[in-house]
Nucleic acid binder design. Structure first.
Lengths: 144, 144
DNA sequence: CTCGATGCAAAGTGTTTGCAGTACG
DNA sequence: CGTACTGCAAACACTTTGCATCGAG
């Protein structure tokens, strides 16, 4: 599943990009966690390995890696975007109290071919499903 | 469906808020359209009736009316939020080219009781479905 | 009258960008 | 070596906030 550095480098090179130390480490750090961190959290994570990396580089690389299909950006009704290196098709659950995001691999077998839309000439290409509710921790606190 | 001014006033009063001219007109203007406008578009719409209204007032009222459950905010992966006075349960289609948002009233009969989440103690309370694709206009342009 | 709401402008927040120097391939 | 990338800081876009004043109830 996880591409080797060589595969990665080739893939990046093909599009005219370069595999810099910064770019590689941004992706590595994001791939390590499943917490869907925000840009500032990724900045902190990467800074442990490249102390003088800048926010500009973080944002530029997050964007580039997205173009390359190596990560995706989540925008779930909150000010700042969150990032996810899990690029397989999956949905997300988000806790309405603590904002924690959890991957949901379930296949919902959704038929997005809405007749009404189709008739009007709309073409649905993909869907994103957000499940909202309480995580176990916040559920416990709530019942107090 | 559409509440009278009196009903609205009472509902707002109950929570300790006041029905000001500004607040009423923000809601009226949003209810007129189904285009899910951004805050700056709402500002322009309201400014035709209250020429010296400020952005602060627009944002404060959009927030207050949201708390009152009279409108909702959409955040679909773009910088600025969009607003919707249609408060019935419905989903949204968004064109990936022109960003147009269309209401989809279809009931998808989705079972969000994901066994894996349930087992771990997560509680799903609601879901939001985003359909993404091409609107008729952009579809036509695309095939050129 | 009282206290919540307004208009204005200034301050935030998260993200993007211009530039001169750096380093990948 | 050429050109994409970096660090830095300044610029941006959108939203929030402090304050004096206004006006709904």
């Amino acid at each position: 599943m996880k591409p080797t550095v060589e595969t990665l480098a080739r893939r990046i090179r093909e599009k005219g990009y370069r595999l810099t130390r910064q770019r590689q480490i941004v992706l590595e750090e994001l791939a390590k966690v499943d917490s869907h961190p925000r840009a500032d959290q990724i900045y902190q994570m990467v800074r442990r390995r490249i102390p003088n990396i800048s926010f500009g580089t973080i944002y530029r690389n997050l964007k580039t890696l997205q173009e390359l299909g190596l990560l995706s950006e989540l925008q779930y009704g909150h000010k700042s975007a969150r990032f996810d290196a899990n690029i397989g098709a999956h949905q997300h659950f988000m806790c309405r109290v603590c904002d924690k995001v959890v991957d949901v691999d379930e296949d919902f077998g959704l038929d997005v071919n809405v007749p009404g839309l189709k008739r009007l000439g709309y073409e649905v290409e993909e869907y994103r499903l957000q499940l909202l509710g309480l995580c176990p921790t916040c559920k416990k606190k709530e019942s107090t």
